[in-house]
Each structure stands twice: as structure tokens, then as C-alpha cells.
């Protein structure tokens, strides 16, 4: 778990420090150096407009990582709200909210997002909200299950008997004890968010050119796969390394709890 965490930290660092690292701006056109294979001057080569792929991948990392993290935050917050209310209130409200969750889980996520994105033509901010709102169901289920079991535990009952109100019970007693499960589920949502952003951009309905994202770089690479295959390598490799690290961290986090007494 340490190595993937380190990889993630350096990716985020590189995305932040992109202007200091890259030798060319991401939208710098060099028409004398178009379609160059990887070389000492351009490590990952250049595209059809002579733009440096290293620069575009690192600037693209800002978009891809940002969308992944923020959409997971949206998913986490809305999932916590819905799952928390369902698990705490129980009864009819719980039944209604959980049937809604089941319904959302039954609609295939990527096609639904593709339709929504092609209708709304979203900016990056709207894209974050869309991907986040398509991903709250897992968190809601996890949090509801946690709240259901915690609710009947002795310390919660005694707090209620001591006169704690709903807000205090949830904020002080229930949420902190569900935090671990919540963090694991939000971590997995980060990986899913990055994959969904790249898929949407790959279909041309996500992040729009000329702004670079890993997904739309692959969209662009697809049209010249036989002549400039290097354009498809770097962005995909970065997606894989990032989601792989995030998933390994998530696995490590969920194991660290099961080894606790």
C-alpha cells in the first residue's frame, strides 16, 4: 500500500508542478515537429499539430485527477446523505430510498452518463457533478449498512438515553464509527471517476479539446493508430497507473480494518 500511495502522491505533485517540469506549454504548436516519434526532445513524441505529448499528459493529469477526486467527493457527500438518512430513519423512508438506489444501480452507468453528457455538453465542473451523481449508490449502501448495525449498539443507545439529539447522535456517534467504511468506498469512487471521465472524453462527450485530458488524448490518438501509435501509449498508461494505485490503496485500507480487533 505504501508504493501505490507514493506513486499517487508523485502524480498529484507532477500535475501541480506541471508548468515547472515540462519544456513546452501543452498548447504550443510546433509545425516543424509534427507527428514525431518519441525522442530525447519529446519523450512521448508529438501529435499532429506538433504539441508535446509529455506536456499534454501532465496538464491532462490536472483535469483527470481533479475530475476523479472531486467527483468522488460529490458521490461521497450525496451517498452519505442518502445512505445516512435511510440507515438512521429506517422504516418507510429507508424502503423508498433503497428502492431508488436499486433503480439507479440497474441503469447502466456509462450509457446513462453518455446520454446526459451529450445532451448537456458539460463544462469540466458540470462533468464532475454528473459523474459524482452517477456514483452515489455504492456509498449510500455501505453507509446505510454501517448505520443500521451501529444504531443498535450499546454506546449509541446509551447516548440516546442520555438525551442526545438526532444531530449529535449522527455527527458524534454514528459518522465517526462509519468513517473507515466511508473512506474505502470513496477511494473506489475516485478510481471509477477517473475511468468514467476518460471513457466519456474518449467518446468525445467529456472534456473537450483543446483542453487535454487523458481520455480525449486517446480519442485523438484513435484516428492515427497505424501511423502514430505512440500517441495512444502514454495517456492510457497514466490512466492505468493512476487507477491501479488508487485501487491498491483502497484494498489496503479495507484490509487494514479487517485486521483490527
Amino acid at each position: 500500500m505504501r508504493l501505490p500511495a507514493l506513486v499517487l502522491a508523485s502524480l498529484v505533485g507532477a500535475a501541480f508542478a506541471a508548468p515547472a517540469i515540462v519544456r513546452y506549454p501543452p498548447d504550443h504548436l510546433d509545425l516543424d515537429a509534427r507527428r514525431q516519434p518519441p525522442s530525447a526532445a519529446h519523450w512521448f513524441g508529438t501529435d499532429d499539430l506538433g504539441r508535446d505529448v509529455v506536456a499534454r499528459v501532465l496538464y491532462g493529469a490536472r483535469v483527470s485527477l481533479g475530475v476523479g477526486l472531486l467527483s468522488a467527493a460529490v458521490a461521497g457527500i450525496s451517498g452519505t446523505g442518502i445512505g445516512g438518512v435511510a440507515g438512521y430513519a429506517g422504516g418507510a423512508l429507508d424502503a423508498v430510498l433503497m428502492r431508488g438506489t436499486d433503480a439507479m444501480l440497474a441503469v447502466p452507468r456509462l450509457p446513462l452518463l453518455m446520454i446526459a453528457a451529450s445532451i448537456l455538453q458539460p463544462t469540466v465542473g458540470v462533468l464532475v457533478v454528473l459523474i459524482g451523481l452517477a456514483g452515489w449508490m455504492e456509498t449510500a449502501r455501505v453507509l446505510r449498512a454501517e448505520f443500521m448495525t451501529l444504531r443498535t449498539r450499546g454506546f449509541v443507545e446509551s447516548a440516546r438515553a442520555a438525551g442526545a439529539g438526532h444531530a449529535r447522535l449522527v455527527m458524534v456517534h454514528l459518522l465517526p464509527n462509519a468513517a473507515h467504511a466511508l473512506i474505502v468506498s470513496v477511494t473506489l469512487a475516485v478510481a471509477r471517476g477517473i475511468l468514467l471521465e476518460s471513457a466519456l472524453s474518449f467518446f468525445g462527450v467529456g472534456v473537450r479539446p483543446p483542453q487535454a485530458s487523458w481520455g480525449n488524448m486517446l480519442y485523438q490518438a484513435q484516428s492515427s493508430l497505424t501511423t502514430e501509435p505512440w500517441l495512444a501509449v502514454a495517456p492510457g498508461l497514466f490512466i492505468l497507473i493512476t487507477t491501479w494505485s488508487v485501487n491498491l490503496v483502497g484494498d489496503g485500507l479495507s484490509r487494514s480494518r479487517s485486521s483490527q480487533p
Binding site: L195, S198, A199, L218
Partner: peptide, 11 residues
């Protein structure tokens, strides 16, 4: 499970 299916296809 971390692999973007479309990129795997392109490769």
C-alpha cells in the same frame, strides 16, 4: 479492474 477497456483494445 483498473484497466480502461478501450485503451486495452487500442493497444
Amino acid at each position: 479492474i483498473s484497466l480502461p477497456a478501450f485503451w486495452f483494445g487500442l493497444l
